[in-house]
Nucleic acid binder design. Structure first.
Lengths: 253, 253
DNA sequence: GAGTGGTCTAGACCACGCT
DNA sequence: GCGTGGTCTAGACCACTCA
């Protein structure tokens, strides 16, 4: 056999494949177009399906592809820029904030959240589940945790339908001093995955927010954004920039 | 065979494995401790190595494990909170900003960056490579792009060693109006991966920042943070909170 | 029911870090 | 040189969507 492939030395096949596919996506496919199925693609490139899948997985992680069981693999549109952390500090649910409330329960928060709130680990807190959709597609789900101490004026008897609005209303009577946020990578738990229309384990960006009022942490939220379709934008101004993905950039030593 | 496993129906093995391992990590292992190797673990759980690896990959993605070729799999410490976007707007390299400059070159920026800067696609810009380490470990690399128009006072003849400091110094003479930032998931390119001490393709959080001065975008940067070890914190106040990972949280319908 | 992606197996070999 | 994780193969079956 001749050594025809000088360039491919020491580079994993799936990595090379990924590059090739990435370029092909730019030049030969339209957004939304469906690709040949995995078995055909693997055969075409002369690799095992598992190897091809490794390349596809990476491209999906980077938001270039979208795969759906029973349907196929399609070219993904550019990521959606979703604003996180508006210019003015506002309480969740105040004004027009792009979230829709799904429900509310009173439950013991996970230990991590209790630490964030500074409450006892076994104390029940109001837990509001919300969802955020952009262009008709779900991009995030959130759990907002409000300790009873933050909403002392809350009426005692509430129907499930009244619960969430009442908690938010009470919250808005407080003065919001500041918010801090953290962003980290996570994988979708079963429940979040269902709301986000993904499989469990899908990569998500977890945004943890502490709402501070009167020197105390008055509420905290854990929001889960689809990492494949979203770009989180901070900063005040118009955030809807173009996105894309560069193969490899020139270097600065 | 008796149907001993009622709970495991319809749940992928790797998902169940992940849960089991996650719990074991909490109860039976110390941070930094090395796990049995993959072949042993797979045998112990009665699954193929590929299946075990699928579970390990997820746990690594979530920052619970750290795997190193030739060494082994260790229990990862909690993610490091790294501050992004300080309270006061500051130029890169001003004051004490946790970054160290590696080098600088004049090169054509990738198309995406040119769009961000509003420069021509084929215009050369100053490209400063920087690195950020926390507790001795590299957590991020950055490319800072500065169009020549933003630093008109830059001397003509510069040695490589003088280049980066000179660009930053010139930049600091401008007044910074605002910054916007975006965060998205990406995978490390070969070059970034090397600086971050990871394999190419490792998950990273890509932070894109636009620095606005005089109504124009005076500079832009693309910073690449290790997604496995970092938690990006925004907001002004003390950000070094505890992190951990909850199995599954109670629900709010 | 046909076709898709998702899971799983039981092997093999390779690249790397140590010692 | 040995042990580790990383890559790759050639199969199989399952879960899902859609006509």
């Amino acid at each position: 056999m001749g050594t025809t492939q000088l360039e491919s030395v020491q580079e994993p096949k799936y990595w090379h494949l990924k590059t090739v596919l990435n370029d092909a996506l730019d030049s030969e496919f339209e957004v939304g177009e469906i690709l040949p199925n995995e078995r055909d693609l693997a055969a075409r490139f002369g690799v095992a399906r598992a190897t091809l899948r490794q390349a596809l997985e990476q491209l999906e992680l980077e938001g270039r592809l979208q795969r759906r069981r029973g349907v196929g693999t399609t070219v993904a549109p550019p990521r959606i820029g979703v604003a996180v952390g508006p210019s003015a500090n506002t309480w969740p649910g105040a004004g027009r904030d792009a979230w829709t409330t799904i429900g509310c329960a009173e439950a013991v928060a996970p230990a991590a959240v209790a630490a964030l709130l500074g409450t006892a680990a076994d104390e029940a807190v109001h837990t509001v589940r919300r969802e955020r959709t952009v262009q008709g597609q779900p991009v995030a789900t959130e759990l907002l945790y409000v300790p009873p101490a933050s909403v002392p004026g809350l009426p005692g008897l509430l129907t499930p339908a009244e619960h969430a609005p009442a908690v938010l209303r009470e919250l808005h009577t407080l003065e919001l001093e500041s918010e801090d946020r953290a962003v980290e990578l996570g994988s979708a738990r079963a429940e979040d995955a269902k709301l986000l229309d993904r499989l469990p384990g899908a990569p998500v960006l977890v945004v943890t927010t502490r709402y501070v009022s009167g020197g105390r942490v008055a509420a905290a939220s854990v929001a889960t954004y689809r990492a494949d379709t979203c770009r989180l934008t901070f900063g005040d101004s118009g955030a809807l920039e173009v996105t894309h993905h560069e193969p490899e950039s020139r270097q600065a030593s």
